[in-house]
Design a protein around this nucleic acid. Structure first.
Length: 225
DNA sequence: GCGACAG
DNA sequence: ATCTTGTCGC
């Protein structure tokens, strides 16, 4: 996959915020007219503070069978601290290196984190949506910003996530009884479609397969040796 | 000043 | 994110 160089990764928190404000203006929540989901990818990272190493994995699955068809990994020293709201600048560089190796023509990517549901409207899913040029969805295990009502207990139950008077995502129950996940559009996708993609890629676990598989692969890379 | 705070 | 086996509950 081609990762557009819209900016440097060698920045400080002040510059990172400026980049987010600038890029957020380019977010488009409209689904491409010719969109069809044949291959979906998932991305995630694992961090080893002891070895001072951050491991990334991008896994591609076919749709609708959800079989893993490609796995790409990358590792490097962390160069940016974890700061709520600036996650992309900690995980971005190593993730980009993994995406560059992907050969399968992916139609959409699911990220472990927020998309639109971010202080400046540019969570990791939105940011990479711009860098990759294809639809992206953010699926966070917890909330970063916004208010919501607890969704019902059944799988598929949801409630809108609101922030500053706007809808920024959906709090979605992906399995009966489990804690809900926070789904938000990255770029080039709407709220309803984002939820459809998540429900369509969830099997027997709380997290969708793309992200779940990526999480496992990042962990395996970290464990080898 | 106080509370919130993706991974 | 990460430290970590068994165990309580649907």
């Amino acid at each position: 996959m081609r990762v557009t160089s819209l900016h440097s990764w060698a920045v400080n928190p002040i510059q990172a915020v400026a980049i987010q404000k600038d890029l957020s203006e380019r977010i488009d929540l409209r689904l491409p007219r010719d969109f069809s989901l044949r291959y979906v990818a998932g991305a995630d990272v694992s961090v080893d503070r002891e070895r001072e190493r951050i491991y990334a994995a991008v896994v591609v699955l076919s749709v609708p069978d959800l079989m893993v068809v490609e796995i790409r990994q990358s590792a490097m020293p962390p160069e940016f601290p974890y700061v709520p709201g600036l996650l992309t600048f900690r995980e971005g560089k190593v993730l980009a290196a993994a995406f560059e190796q992907v050969q399968t023509p992916c139609d959409l990517v699911v990220f472990d984190g927020q998309g639109l549901a971010h202080p400046r409207g540019l969570g990791i899913a939105s940011h990479f949506g711009l860098l990759l040029g294809i639809p992206t969805v953010g699926v966070g295990k917890s909330k970063l910003v916004g208010d919501y009502g607890e969704p019902g207990p059944d799988k598929g139950s949801s409630s809108p996530l609101l922030y500053k008077g706007e809808r920024v995502g959906t709090v979605l129950r992906t399995r009966r009884g489990v804690r809900p996940v926070f789904v938000s559009p990255g770029n080039r996708i709407d709220h309803a479609s984002a939820v459809d993609v998540v429900l369509g890629t969830c099997t027997r676990y709380r997290l969708p397969e793309p992200t779940r598989q990526a999480h496992l692969e990042a962990g395996r890379l970290r464990s080898e040796k």
